[in-house]
Every structure is written in structure tokens, then in C-alpha cells.
């Protein structure tokens, strides 16, 4: 394949991925928006007013960036894991496997598809949050940078999950037992300065903490941890996941018999 053909293959995958989540929008776009609207009402308005301030910010302003990030993470992951596993399950992944499309194009195509949904939902949720609180963007490059890298990292993770998955149970285990706890303990709802020494130390192993804080910094200008460190951490994880995903595709494990 020459470069132009590769580009066609790549954009075909991305377009097909976007078409997929747009076609089933009641399953892909509506639920996250409803969930987030509830979070905003409950934490922002009802409980938030009792909490007062967190890190010197009104609680709604503290929690909104975390919630936006949460929707980007879960939707990027969910899109790739269900789309890729779905095409394994229906066997239409074979359409790609018999084609001359190189594995790294397959990988980036699916990942960009997942990022599109993650960022798309993130944008809708951001618009929604504007109804509940006011923000002025503190740093546009930090905000955009961390959003892209987070969506990238969780799309990659979703792909790896899908390659290993043999059943629909297997694609909900990681989101339920790993992703959700990490998100809830990743500084979305509270500042880790509230935690004692040991718990704070443990929290520092949670990559989501770094993303949420970097994003919050980008939006409202406060963070519990070093921003450069955040980017380094997310970059490192993404590079690692990319390598693993590509290795699995090259090996053809669980895809070719």
C-alpha cells in the first residue's frame, strides 16, 4: 500500500467507527449525558452547596472538570472495546484482517474512532456543565493536550481489552472492577490533600489522578500535582499501551487461528 492508500484505509476505519456510534446514539451518546446531568444536579447544586469549597473553589467548579474527564475516559474506552469486540464476535474483523491494511493503521483507526466519541461526549458534557457553573479556561494548550492524551490512552486500553475478550462478560469486567474504582478514587470528587499520608501515597499510583488534575488545571487553574509530571505519566502509559496493542495485532493472537 502506498501512503495515499493507507490514508484511505485509515479514514475508512475512522468514518465507520463514527458512523457506528452515531447510528446507535441512544446507547452511546444519551446515557453519559443523562448520568452527568444527574451528577451536576446532585453534587453541584444539592450537595455541593452544603460542601462549600474544595481547594478554594466552589464545589461545582471543582467537580465539573473531573466529571467531564470521567465521561471522556469511559466513552473512549467503551467505544473501542465494544466496537472491536463486536467485530470480533460478528467476525467482520476478518474484512480488515484479509485486507492489506497494516496493523498500525487498524490500531490508529480504531483509536481515533474511540477518541472521537470520548471527546464528542466530553464536549456535550462541557456544554451541559456551563448551565450549572461558569468557567474561564485557564490554559487552552493544557486542556486540549490532556484531553487528547487521555482519550488516546483509554482507547488503546479498550482495544487491548477487546483483543483479549472472549465474551461480552469479558468486556465489562475491566470497566466495572478496574476503571470505575480508579475514576472514583482518582480525585474526581475530592482533592487528595484530604487524604492521609498512606492513602495519598497509594493514590499517586493511580494514572487517572494525573489526568483529572491536569485537566482541572487547564480549566480552572488548580492542581494537586505537578502538570509536567502528569503529561509525562500519561504519555508513558500511552506509549506502553500502544506498543502492547500493536504487538498483539502483529501476533494475531485471538484474531487469527
Amino acid at each position: 500500500m502506498n501512503n495515499q492508500q493507507k490514508w484511505v484505509a485509515f479514514s475508512t476505519i475512522v468514518r465507520r467507527e463514527i458512523r457506528r456510534f452515531m447510528r446507535i446514539w441512544p446507547q452511546t451518546l444519551v446515557p453519559p449525558v443523562i448520568t452527568m446531568a444527574l451528577y451536576f444536579v446532585i453534587f453541584g447544586k444539592l450537595i455541593g452547596s452544603r460542601i462549600g469549597e474544595m481547594s478554594d473553589l466552589p464545589y461545582i467548579q471543582f467537580v465539573a472538570p473531573g466529571l467531564i474527564m470521567m465521561s471522556i475516559i469511559t466513552n473512549s474506552y467503551a467505544n473501542v472495546v465494544s466496537s472491536f469486540f463486536g467485530s470480533k464476535f460478528q467476525r467482520n474483523i476478518e474484512e480488515l484482517l484479509v485486507s492489506p491494511t497494516p496493523n498500525w493503521i487498524i490500531l490508529t483507526g480504531y483509536v481515533v474512532g474511540g477518541m472521537s466519541r470520548g471527546i464528542g461526549v466530553g464536549l456535550i458534557v462541557t456544554l451541559l456543565s456551563l448551565y450549572f457553573a461558569e468557567f474561564s479556561l485557564h490554559s487552552i494548550p493544557v486542556t486540549i493536550g490532556i484531553v487528547l492524551m487521555t482519550a488516546l490512552m483509554f482507547s488503546l486500553a479498550g482495544l487491548i481489552n477487546a483483543i483479549f475478550a472472549n465474551s461480552f462478560d469479558d468486556i465489562s469486567i475491566i470497566p466495572t472492577f478496574v476503571l470505575t474504582p480508579l475514576i472514583y478514587l482518582g480525585g474526581v470528587f475530592y482533592s487528595i490533600d484530604l487524604l492521609g499520608g498512606l492513602w495519598k501515597a497509594i493514590s499517586l499510583f493511580n494514572p487517572i489522578l494525573y489526568m483529572v488534575n491536569a485537566f482541572r488545571y487547564g480549566m480552572v487553574g488548580i492542581t494537586d500535582i505537578n502538570i509536567v509530571g502528569s503529561f509525562a505519566m500519561v504519555g508513558l502509559f500511552s506509549a506502553l499501551l500502544f506498543t502492547v496493542a500493536l504487538f498483539l495485532l502483529e501476533k494475531g493472537s485471538r484474531l487469527r487461528s
Binding site: V8, I13, S87, Q90, R91, P100
Partner: peptide
């Protein structure tokens, strides 16, 4: 055995498959 996406339309399936071969 059938191995196309059952939810997609024949026309989309063909154009997508062509794309995988680099055909615009």
C-alpha cells in the same frame, strides 16, 4: 460463513471493504 456486520447496509459494507484496500 457469513462474516459481515449484520447491522450495516450492503452498500456501506462494499464501500468500507474497498476502503480497506485503499480504494477511495
Amino acid at each position: 460463513e457469513f462474516n459481515f456486520n449484520q447491522f450495516e447496509k450492503p452498500l456501506d459494507i462494499l464501500i468500507t471493504q474497498a476502503g480497506y484496500y485503499g480504494i477511495p
